[in-house]
Computed example of a mutant assay.
Amino acid sequence: MAQGRGSAVALGLALLCLLIHSEIANAATYVVGDSGGWTFNVAGWPSGKRFRAGDVLVFRYNPSDHNVVAVTAAGYGGCSAPRGSRVYTSGNDRITLARGTRYFICSFAGHCQAGMKIAVTAA
């Protein structure tokens, strides 16, 4: 009888792995700003796209000219990066989306105000 329970647990784990693999396989990768990359006037870039939890955003930019900062809705609206905000500076940042809305800005002076910000909602 113990072997039967062990087989059921193994089958359950195998199904769980298959489900996780299937979710990962369905994840999409998006280059923010498409061929123009992370630059000015990208605020409308997410329009018309359907993002899902697990999708990956790739921010491509020159790190001496820009950065990417994950901010709150207030930080997005006010173009400000609150203390403790996560700052990305590689020039090729990959960010996996969780369910909900994520906000990103460039914190270089005037860049966010020039439209270098996006809000992305993942289902």
Rank of each mutant, 00 (worst) to 15 (best):
R52V: 12
G33R: 04
K49H: 14
V42I: 13
V56Q: 11
G44P: 00
S35C: 01
W45T: 11
W38N: 07
W38S: 01
P46S: 08
K49I: 00
F40S: 15
D34K: 15
Y30H: 15
P46G: 12
G54S: 11
A43V: 04
A53R: 09
V58P: 00
G36I: 04
S35G: 08
R52K: 15
W38M: 04
V32C: 03
P46H: 04
A43K: 15
W45L: 13
V42H: 01
K49L: 02
F51P: 14
G37E: 08
P46T: 12
K49Q: 09
V32E: 01
V42R: 01
D55T: 10
V42S: 03
S47H: 11
G54A: 06
W45M: 10
G36R: 14
W45E: 06
Y30Q: 11
S35M: 09
L57I: 06
V31C: 07
R50F: 02
T39G: 13
T39A: 07
A43Y: 08
V32M: 01
F51Q: 12
S47P: 00
D34C: 07
D55A: 00
A53E: 12
G54I: 00
S47R: 14
Y30D: 12
K49Y: 03
G44F: 06
W45H: 12
F40I: 07
L57C: 13
G44T: 14
K49W: 03
